[in-house]
Design a protein around this nucleic acid. Sequence first.
RNA 1: GGGCGGUUAGCUCAGCGGGAGAGCAUCGGCCUUACAAGCCGGGGGUCGUAGGUUCGAAACCUACACCGCCCACCA
Length: 925
Amino acid sequence: MEEEILPKSYQPETVEEKWYQFWIEKGYFKAQAKSHKPPFSMVIPPPNVTGSLHMGHALNNTIQDIIARYKRMDGYNVLWLPGTDHAGIATQNVVEKMIAKEGISRHHLGRKKFIERVWKWKEESGSTIINQLKRLGASCDWSRERFTMDEGLSKAVKQVFLRLFKEGLIQRDNRLINWCPRCGTALSDLEVEYEEKNGNLYYIKYPFVEYPSRFIVVATTRPETMLGDTAVAVNPDDKRYKHLVGKHVQLPLANRQIPIIADSMVDVAFGTGAVKITPAHDFADEATGRRHNLEFCSVIDREGKMSGDIPAEYIGLNRFEARTKIVDDLRQQELLLKVEAMKHNVGHCYRCKDVTEPLLTLQWFVRIKSLAEKAIAAVREKKIKIIPEQWENTYFNWMENIQDWCISRQIWWGHQIPVYYCPRCDGDKILITLRENQADTKRLQGNYNDFIKEGLSFEKIIEDIDYYLILDDAVPIVEGESCKKCGCKELIQDPDVLDTWFSSALWPFSTLGWPEHTDELKTFYPTSVLVTGFDILFFWVARMIMMGLKFMEDVPFKDVYIHALVRDSKGQKMSKSKGNVIDPLSVIDKFGTDSFRFTLAALAAQGRDVKLSEARIEGYKHFVNKIWNASRFVKMNIENYKVSQDYEIDIKNLHPFDNWILTRLNETIADVRSYYDNYNFNDAANAIYRFLWNDFCDWYIEHSKLRANESVVKHLLWYCLTTSLKLLHPIMPFVTEEIYQRLPHFDESIMISNFPVANTAFIGKDVSNIELLIKVIRAIRNVRSEMNVAPSQRPFVTIVAKNEGMGKFLREVKDFIEQLSRTQAEFVDELKERPASSALTVVEGIDIWVNLEGLINVEDEKNRIMKEINKTEKDVEFLNKKLSNEDYLKHAPEDVVEEDRQKLSVYKEKLAKLVENLEFLKGLK
RNA sequence: GGGCGGUUAGCUCAGCGGGAGAGCAUCGGCCUUACAAGCCGGGGGUCGUAGGUUCGAAACCUACACCGCCCACCA
């Protein structure tokens, strides 16, 4: 069964790979689509398929693995479904950079070849992060690994798009959107990061048409957009400008005339109180423009260059060059009044950090309001619990102010929008072609079903829509499909792809086989918990809730556990540019996976960022080693003992130490269970740490050296260790398995053993006797240390205690006192005469005299006892004061007061003895 | 501008109405036959500031300060 003696220290590298393979081979990670066990499911937040593991992943997946392993041991049919995300823009950018090294761009390759290239890269690098997750110990059901662009998920995406479209929830529209000139695509509002930058506020003079020598002055941070101005706005209540509303000004440089309009959006106090309005390049101005029916004049193109109906000298300049030139030109024409430095927020692309540009373009949008309302309700009604709860506010705040979601991206890597256009037909009025296979149609539920029952009614509803939409389902659309109007077969698919987060939003049900009605969906949806960082609360979590409610008519998960960010030891965000990135894999190599995982768990307090340092991980490596050595001890001590699972402990006649350790163990089990259940992983980690180290090792093992031949001790050494290993296994899977296998064990693996259940007989049991014993031993050790008694010395101690109650108990455990305090003890009922040259310490009314003969002088003892007197005096003073306060006695609960009274009498007694002893010492000279 | 978190020992944090805690670091003593990656012991804090509630506040309330996030169309 188990091997010989354990090596002196734990070597992670030799065991981790071995056990991971073992678990996989045994199929422990696999979930059952149908099972008599209760289901428990999680879907992994899919990492970027071409990415590699960073600290955020490590924390995220460690937490999920802790939950998965705990629940599995606790009897659940656990599905932890893994997978990766195609990560549209991010992946495309990576591959573009790669081919740029070969001197080519994606446009050289063409769409088809480029996408082939990306797939190739995906095939090459896609396993990197999966393998890294495996090194972390992640117990995902790898047989169910999914990818957001695999066949099944693509089908789900198309279904969802079609249905949302048919319900009018997806629309195509010409609106102002955030555009990244570098990536060449539209972005959703969320994909723009605002950063405060130093900029200028330029005051520009716009001459009146009727009085060219007079001006209205506008202030702007973006003078280059003035070429697209179509109005100047003032506040209707602004007395300075009231009379000018309706007049026209000459737009400098552009040679156009634009009106002065009144709009309450204008802040009278800011700048000059007159605002240039550029509806095609500013979100606020867009709204104003729509309110006033202004012209939308685009002057910046998709590459961020000046274009459109503007003077030739500006055409082709990039935005920033144009700004410089326009300011110069204005200055030359004396139209620039002044320039003030000003900080303002500048939007950046979250993928490439280029400055984003509001552009007017034709895009696809999800009308999200109605979806959001249901998603808000689900959280309000606690159908979904967000943990920690404080995030609910953030969620509500965002959801209640949600804007339509721009889902089209002008890139190539992703789910191409399943919409087709007929190149021959009249551009603006086209029919819809819809095709689905019959089986699918039958399966669809609810409104949708009714909706498409008759092709006619559907066409009627959408007859005003000006494009073709075809569900590219089982059969490729290009083959055999034709335009219903002109019959042409050369339909062109919309070139845009969907926002990556569109497919991610379907993840909890698309990965379970939707739109098929699978056993997996039935068993595992809704999933039990989603574990994620707060940074994708809006990107992902909120959208999953909306889509889940819409298409599954149920929440996608019951709990959302939101964990913190991993930062460096100074609390700074880890980033490549700062050079403070700690690579999880190198940490694993250096310290082992278990110490790393334990560190993450121990630091992952709810609502706090994780400040990670290598020193910390190294510290917990010591803990791993401590467990290892405790196991060595246990193993050596049970060598010739046959461990039995059925060992019956005689609860009524337990040795006090056994009673104590079992009480501590069971309390720990109950605590750890509750901590795991409530996502308090740091508390769980600390509780196990304390039990194993401070209780089991420091006291139980140490005391057991005196009882080494008792079978109950052998049993309990094995039992307590094995049980705490099980508690720890979710956090430290490898070392716990290694030790479990080397000790006598009754399951094939610790992974499939039952998670410990607390024996209620030991919860809250009175163990004050051992607690007193520990205090006595500590007090003696304290005296020894303070008086510099060498550890090799075994002084006599005289303990004054009647042979009844606690005194009797202490007499019974004399051997342990002697062993653990390294003394020779004698007990007396009362002192006949003061022991010579001894130091006195008092514990709960029990006098303990440590004989220091030949070891110490009187002066040292005087000093020591003075210190103890001072401390005790303070205690007495404090309690006296408290107990003489009438208000306290009147208001405080009985038991609190009673406790204080008892404490006071104990302290007073102690003080009297100490003082008496001091007086004696003084008399000695 | 709105919102959320934080401020407790040198460091990282727990405590969230009844005498200030842990780990690490530090100091002193130990190679005591599981473990020096260890054992034993010590020192160290007017719990950000100012008010308030209370018999009693690190904890609850109100302001303020500083740090960190998130959201927002002051150009």
